[in-house]
Structures are given as C-alpha cells and as structure tokens.
Design a protein around this nucleic acid. Structure first.
Length: 276
DNA sequence: AGCCAGGACAAGT
DNA sequence: ACTTGTCATGGC
C-alpha cells in the first residue's frame, strides 16, 4: 500500500518553483492552479509555494520514513547550495546581475542522470512544448503507472529492447534510434551514469558522447542537470546568442566552477526578453 | 511555403 | 579543422 507524506519546508531561501520548474531545465512538471505536480525518483510529488515556504505532498510506500523523503527533496531542489554567495560573486558582471534580478530563484535541479540524458537527447533541434509532449508520451507508454495515475520515467532496461517502430507513437522523429541506443548502452552497463558524478569532467563527456545522438551540448546538459556538474556551460542556439551579444569575453575565471548556474540564468533571461 | 526549435552526424572542402 | 545538407515533427 501507499501513503501520502506531507512535508513543510519553512526556509527554502532562494528557491522559487515557478521559475525553476519552467525555465527549460526539466520537462515533466506541470502547474494546476497554485500546485506544481511532478514525478521524481519514481514518486508522485505535489508542491505549493507561498513565499519562502513550500508544502510538499509525496506519494510513498508504506514503509518509507519522512526523513528520507526530506533528504530526497533537499537533494532534488538543491536546497543546500549557497546560492546567495554565488549571486554575490556573479553580481560583478553587469549582464549576470541583470539576469538574476530579472528572475531570481532558479535552482539547478538534481534530476536523475538517465532522465536528464534521455530528455536532452529528445531536446535536440526541437522546441520546449514539443519536447514536453514527447517525454509525456514516453512516460505514459513505457513508464510505471503510479497509485495516483501519473507515470514514472521509464527505466533504460525497459527501452533497451524496443525498436524505433515501437517508439513511433511518441512522434520523436529521428531521435527514436538515439533513445534506444542510449538505453541499450546504459542498460548493459557499458556506460555507468552513477560513475560520472566523480569522473574527470572531460572523461565523463567523452563517455556520454559515444552514445549515438549525443554531442557536446546534450552531454553538457546531462552532466549539469543530471549529475550536478556545475562547471558545465551548455551552448545551444540561445546561449550562442547570449555569448555573441551579451558575453563576448566569456565568464571571469573565478566564476567557472559555477558556470552552469550562470548559464541557466542567462538562458532564461535571453529567452524571455529576446525581441521584446 | 518556408523557417525555426535547448543538435548531431556524415560528407565535403 | 571548419562548413553544409540532412535528419522527423509541429507551430507559426
């Protein structure tokens, strides 16, 4: 049987769900009224924020304790990183300060590595609404149905035996064969995603890029959003615009350890203001 | 109709 | 080492 664990987090300091969950780093959270709903680590989560307080309802197994769920949430929403200290360093750069002031409250989520890899394979040469649709159909078709009727993200082992024809209902186009190759390589143990938390960054990137359809950008996104490698600075069409128009000299050296956070703020800023 | 979307890849210089 | 066409799909 299952139960619903309710958790109130009183001081989430910099985190703002409305921006964090809708700034292009994740694709499965949806907002209904004042409630965000998503599935993380195979659990259905509903979150409501009022100021610096967030109320979570998490659907759990009967034997699970509140403390481990709390650890999961702290981890996923990156509530232990000192964002104000990082903003303070960033603020010396004019554009970066503008980007942070424009939409403060973005945290870099710690998504599961496989979900991040698969999601950003689907993201290539694609737009965000359609990415969300494809991922939604992927989960409904091949994920596990949860007690509340939502679906988990399908495990690589489930996808590894499929063919592109099996994935046709997703309408993911040429990316179907990429998804399957990634699933095969992870499922058979050739690529150990959990090993990439501590592997040298360059080595981790090379390993990921042996997967069909994974180049530098998808690799960087996987490392940043799935393995919390904050040094990664994914360069997509929007970030190329940012670098060309707003950041011609790149980031100062002392910001490079958190380049990924800067990237997310600049990405959201550019996407929200471009041509407006 | 043509272009673009959180790119990658192969083939061609 | 750089440039170009191609790859599905859908919204504008």
């Amino acid at each position: 049987m299952h139960k619903v664990v309710s958790i109130d987090k009183g001081n989430v300091n910099t985190l703002r769900l409305d921006i964090t969950l809708d700034c292009g780093q994740c694709f499965r959270w949806e907002k209904n009224g004042d409630a965000w709903h998503g599935v993380i680590f195979g659990k259905s989560v509903t979150a409501r924020q009022q100021g610096s307080n967030i109320h979570f309802d998490v659907v759990c197994e009967e034997g699970e304790g509140v403390s481990e769920i709390e650890v999961m949430l702290d981890d996923y929403f990156d509530l232990t990183t000192d964002y104000p200290a990082i903003f303070n360093e960033f603020s010396e750069l004019d554009v970066l300060r503008k980007a942070i002031d424009f939409a403060p409250g973005i945290h870099i989520l710690k998504q599961q590595p496989w979900e991040a890899l698969c999601s950003f394979i689907i993201s290539q040469n694609n737009n965000i609404p359609r990415i969300k649709g494809i991922i939604s159909r992927l989960c409904e078709s091949f994920g596990v149905r949860l007690p509340d009727g939502s679906y988990s993200f399908p495990e690589p082992g489930v996808l590894s035996n499929l063919t592109p024809d099996d994935l046709a209902p997703l309408r993911s186009g040429f990316r179907a064969k990429y998804i399957i190759d990634a699933a095969k390589r992870v499922a058979c143990g050739e690529i150990v995603l959990d090993g990439l938390y501590s592997a040298p960054l360059e080595e981790a990137g090379k390993a990921l890029q042996t997967i069909l359809g994974v180049g530098p950008k998808v690799s960087d996104c996987t490392l940043l959003y799935g393995l919390h490698r904050l040094e990664c600075f994914p360069l997509d069409v929007w970030m190329k615009r940012v670098v060309k128009e707003l950041l011609p000299c790149g980031l100062p050296k002392h910001m490079l350890p958190y380049a990924g956070i800067a990237q997310q703020y600049l990405f959201h800023y550019m996407r929200s203001t471009y041509g407006k």
